[in-house]
């Protein structure tokens, strides 16, 4: 039989244990949360090359635009639009040429490549962030699904290979059957009789 003091002690021990469990869970969750936060900071860092690349592209655009204006001011004297539509068409053609020339420059290609790479890095980081998030919720993540899809794909490939083998066997068989059914030399009556004779038992 337990006394009131023992009961009180048991109760406080249980409360303490519950608190400890809660504190441990909280700590775990916070750490996970911090981990996720750290990931998002890393994601933002991955995107850092993007503004630099943009700045570089903008600088190059300015240079290229200046060249275009110089050229246009010389060429423009020969073109004299009489309606707004003509002016618009002229403007569109010139600017389209300018854009096309700009997008062909090594600077544009290089910087848009950097930009795309930074975007890919950031997207990968975000993907990992999400993987961890789903994993913590005990839900299947994209990685888990990818494994299943890969297994399915391998199975389909194997099945297809078997089907192809069966097709080949069928084709060989039908060719053999044709060869057996058709007389080699239709002029020779003896062979025709033989072939027919062979065919009959099968029927």
């Amino acid at each position: 039989m337990t006394t009131t003091t023992e009961n009180k002690q048991n109760g406080s021990r249980q409360t303490e244990e519950a608190y400890k469990n809660w504190a441990s869970l909280y700590q775990q969750m916070t750490e996970e949360g911090m981990g996720l936060f750290r990931k998002s900071v890393e994601t933002a860092q991955e995107m850092m090359p993007t503004p630099e690349a943009h700045q570089e592209m903008y600088r190059h655009w300015n240079d290229s635009f200046q060249q275009f204006m110089e050229k246009a001011s010389v060429e423009g004297k020969a073109q004299d639009p009489s309606t707004y539509k003509e002016l618009y068409t002229l403007w569109l053609e010139n600017w389209s040429r300018q854009f096309d020339a700009y997008m062909r420059t090594p600077e544009f290609v290089e910087n848009s490549g950097k930009n795309l790479e930074a975007f890919s890095d950031a997207k990968s980081q975000m993907g990992e962030w999400l993987e961890e998030y789903w994993h913590n919720l005990h839900l299947p993540s994209a990685r888990d699904m990818r494994e299943i899809y890969h297994k399915l794909y391998i199975l389909e490939r194997k099945q297809d290979a078997q089907d192809r083998k069966l097709d080949q066997i069928n084709e060989t068989l039908s060719q053999l059957l044709k060869a057996v059914q058709q007389p080699k030399n239709p002029v020779s009556p003896k062979k025709t009789v033989k072939a027919t004779a062979k065919k009959q038992p099968k029927k």
Partner: peptide, 23 residues
């Protein structure tokens, strides 16, 4: 063709892009 220029292997890492896009 612009696509040929943009896909230049020095500046375009196709594997990285596909992996980032999730397959």
């Amino acid at each position: 063709c612009l696509l040929n220029l943009w896909a230049d292997k020095e500046h375009f890492d196709v594997n990285k892009l596909v992996s980032a896009m999730g397959g």
